[in-house]
Amino acid sequence: MGEDRYEALRDDRGNKDRSIARPGGGTLASAGTETEARAVPGHAGEPMLIGDAMTGGYGRGADILTECTIAVDRGKISVIVGPNGAGKSTAMKAVFGMLDVRAGQVRLGGRDITRLTPQARVAAGMAFVPQTSNIFTSMTVEENLEMGAFLRRDDIGETMEQVYDLFPILREKRRQAAGELSGGQRQQVAVGRALMTRPTVLMLDEPTAGVSPIVMDELFDRIIEVARTGISILMVEQNARQALEIADTGYVLVQGRNAYTGTGAELLADPEVRRSFLGG
């Protein structure tokens, strides 16, 4: 066991990101009304989800994002790429309400949700898959999915079947503890858990971190499939080239600002972007 023995000495309470469930504000009881808000039609030409000119940072700290805009259309895939420390994950967390947006707005289906807590945003139709600690390791695959649908009081069987159809390996391993699965399978559980709320927007923080290239391709294929069902996908990726290949819209961030924005193909073709971020 060696090193492993002391792992539990560390606090493994959550994913070490207190901001995920920002305390205070927004009770879960309001979930019902939030769900109704989903039906509100967006403005003409308004994307499904948009973080509009967001400026903000953690707590009282300095601004990390400066007038950063991230958007995703219904059923499309938006990818945030950029060098280390560019604020990619921060931009996504800002959209999800995990840090203070001091200027700018976040709108979901045309409704201003800038002041909602992350939990309230889940009820409003957003789903978030953190980069790490994104599954309940001690629970079975099926229980993970059940917990994903905790807010729902209707029959979840159908959604669960859809998730199993999307990730057939999970159906096979549904009685197994999620913590015993391989890295790629864990990511599938994490995505499946997030899909159980039947979200309109699925947000993924580096879904392919730490998985092999083959598994990565497979995960990207699945993500495209999810998008085809009408769910908007916003993701942060380290593997910029592969991610831009499947992206409808790509955002290159540098120091918390929008550096380049365009379709995935445009960005891949842009000599400036290639030289700076894609290694030639």
Binding site: A123, I135, M147
Partner: peptide, 23 residues
């Protein structure tokens, strides 16, 4: 039970439980 499972989920990963809407 649903409540029992939500307790195990909370014990396993508090943040993810909150994200799933567990009170």
């Amino acid at each position: 039970t649903r409540t029992g499972k939500s307790m195990r989920a909370f014990s396993d990963n508090e943040d993810l439980a909150l994200l799933s809407g567990i009170n």
